[in-house]
């Protein structure tokens, strides 16, 4: 469960988040859409501590990551975020490690798994994302779609309850988005809470339980996909969807 109350965030004069209130239930698949500059990426990044908010409260499974804009010690923040994973627009694979190294480094560092357990899990997850043959490949030899599938498998190695996706297909060639979206769709039945910032409206409509339209740093529309896409009431949302 993710709860945010009145999130505020500015970058200099740019007031990006202007009071974001959101409650995401366990297991929900939430797509966040909106024009660029609407604060959707900043909001997502703040949920896992990559952006520090200036005001408001973030609770993850009831534990406070930030309370009235104040953060606890780094150790506590890490503890609160331990059940969350994130997939980035630019993959952010570790270029000096093989695919196996990318997947196993974190669980081994956290002593969450033994070497054998990590290797077995790595093989399982690579099979799941269709990249078993790339286990010893270096990231530089992979296509964008393959890199992103490795990044998803890497996030899954830590058994997240919540997985955040920050425009996971925006850096990909159009013909490569399908393979990544297929892997994400495959995850939707597993009970993992997914929060996806995306420009893929067809995908959002198909897999999301709930679509959030962010505009001007607030949640402007929050509804089921069919409500948001088929019968938009909000004028800004109408304009946004028309412009696509």
């Amino acid at each position: 469960m993710i709860q945010t109350i009145g999130l505020q965030k500015s970058f200099g004069d740019n007031h990006v988040l202007r009071g974001v209130d959101l409650h995401i239930e366990r297991g929900q698949i939430v797509a966040i859409i909106g024009p660029s500059g609407s604060g959707k990426s900043t909001f997502l990044r703040s949920l896992i501590g990559l952006e520090r908010i200036d005001g408001g409260t973030i609770r993850i499974e009831g534990e406070a990551l930030a309370e009235d804009g104040r953060y606890p010690k780094e150790r506590v923040c890490r503890q609160v975020c331990r059940g969350m994973g994130m997939v980035f627009q630019h993959f952010n694979l570790f270029p000096h490690m093989s695919v196996r190294g990318n997947l196993t480094a974190a669980p081994l560092a956290a002593k969450k798994l033994t070497k054998d357990e990590a290797d077995a899990k790595c093989a399982d997850l690579l099979a799941r994302v269709g990249l078993s043959d790339k286990i010893d490949a270096m990231p530089s030899s992979l296509s964008g779609g393959q890199k992103q599938r490795v990044a998803i498998a890497r996030a899954l190695m830590m058994d997240p309850d919540i997985l955040l996706f920050d425009e996971p297909t925006s850096a990909l060639d159009p013909e490569l988005t399908g393979e990544v979206l297929a892997v994400m769709k495959d995850l939707t039945g597993t009970g993992i809470t997914m929060v996806i910032v995306t420009h893929e409206m067809a995908f959002a409509r198909e897999v999301a339980d709930r679509v959030i339209f962010m505009d001007g740093g607030v949640v402007a529309v929050d509804g089921r996909p069919e409500e948001v896409f088929d019968d938009p009431k909000n004028e800004r949302l109408k304009a946004f969807l028309r412009a696509l």
Binding site: G49, F88, N92, H96, M158
Partner: peptide, 29 residues
């Protein structure tokens, strides 16, 4: 790339481990 620090952070690496395992090998190159 700042994304390397971010990836390490969301995977639960502490500051020291991030330096030793993720950043230094790339810096040396």
């Amino acid at each position: 790339d700042p994304g390397q620090y971010e990836a390490a952070k969301v995977l639960g690496f502490g500051r020291f481990r991030t330096m030793i395992q993720i950043i230094l090998p790339q810096m040396i190159k």
